[in-house]
């Protein structure tokens, strides 16, 4: 294993963590969007706010991490990606801005009318952003992003891109439903937990169906990745499937705490499977890790930078997530549900 392989693995670790944590945040926004009018949606939105306010910025940094590692370790593939996928990336960037800003504004909005505008900006972009991220992934894995730059439209509108978009949104919605069901349950709101449980069951089932249908799409449109997924990455895909089924069963039994673990594990396994299946390509069929890695000294520097991050960031992040899970750090403006954890 070369230094470039190590850096690629670190980079993909960022993708995995962004998919799990960032994905759950996006999914919460999707449920915020689908929560219904103000009479029905109030408590869902309150819970969304409560759950993701303290963590979304930290979860968002995984994306920055991935971008920065990508351009530092693999500058030419990065440039090819950014140039070819200018349009969906612009939409992702737009979604990220509207989502973060809308979320922050809504928290302190003056009245319901303006809160609704900010809320729609937040919630709609929570749907759009993962969708286009999925389409971008589809463009890469189907070999449509050559190093010299590809077509700025057709490269990201192939069958795998549509599959990627749908899977991304469904996965986000699924993990978010499971996470939120657990949060609602912890806060003593069984009816809210039930609301999310049902949606978790439905989206979990749909994700499975789309993923199964996706096998055919990948075989036809992304043969390189397909070979990897059915080859060395197969154990991970199987683990992901088992994790998904286990989550559905646990949701069915209303065992939200372990469901959260299996859901996160399932998403992590499938994304990791994608990485293992795609190895050794950075841009599938066009640029390998070995061929497109930057200067060797930079690879070493990146591994050191990651070491620093692992020592400083990981324990801090664990502290944040534990504090949030215990309700000690909480986005609840109203004291009522947030006092549950500890006085």
């Amino acid at each position: 294993m070369t230094m470039a392989d190590v850096v690629a693995a670190i980079l993909f670790l960022g993708v995995v963590l962004y998919a799990v944590f960032g994905g759950a945040d996006f999914g919460s926004g999707v449920w915020d969007l689908l929560a219904g009018n103000r009479a029905r949606g109030g408590s869902v939105r309150r819970l969304v706010d409560h759950s993701i306010a303290p963590v979304w910025e930290a979860n968002h940094v995984w994306l920055i991490f991935v971008l920065v590692f990508l351009w530092t370790a693999f500058p030419l593939p990065f440039v090819a990606l950014m140039s070819t996928l200018y349009v969906p990336l612009s939409l992702v960037a737009l979604g990220i801005v509207l989502r973060g800003a809308g979320f922050a504004y809504r928290k302190f909005a003056d009245d319901l009318a303006s809160a609704r505008i900010y809320g729609v900006a937040f919630a709609a972009s929570s749907l759009i952003t993962p969708w286009f991220l999925g389409m971008i992934a589809g463009a890469v894995v189907s070999g449509r992003v050559p190093l010299e730059g590809g077509d700025r439209w057709s490269s990201w509108t192939g069958p795998v891109s549509w599959l990627g978009g749908a899977l991304a949104v469904l996965t986000c919605a699924f993990t978010a439903a499971v996470f939120m069901a657990r949060d609602a349950d912890r806060l003593g709101r069984p009816e809210l937990a039930e609301w999310f449980r049902r949606r978790g069951l439905v989206t979990g089932f749909l994700t499975g169906v789309v993923a199964l249908a996706g096998i055919a799409v990948l075989a036809a449109d992304a043969p390189t990745l397909d070979a990897g997924l059915t080859g060395r990455a197969l154990p991970l895909i199987v683990v992901s499937g088992i994790g998904g089924l286990a989550t559905l069963w646990l949701l069915w039994r209303r065992r939200y705490r372990p469901a959260r673990v299996t859901a996160a594990g399932s998403v992590a396994a499938v994304v990791l499977g994608w990485g293992v299946g795609q190895y050794p390509w950075v841009l599938v069929d066009h640029a390998t890790i070995a061929d497109s890695a930057g200067a060797p000294a930079t690879m070493v520097a990146l591994v050191v930078a990651f070491g620093i991050a692992a020592v400083l960031v990981v324990p801090s992040l664990v502290v944040l997530l534990v504090l949030v899970d215990r309700g000690i750090v909480s986005g609840g403006e109203d004291a009522a549900p947030s006092r549950v954890g500890r006085g």
Binding site: R38, A39, R46, A109, L112, L192
Partner: peptide, 9 residues
């Protein structure tokens, strides 16, 4: 934030 009534679910 005003989210609307809190307990309708």
């Amino acid at each position: 934030a005003p989210y609307g009534p809190a307990e309708p679910l």
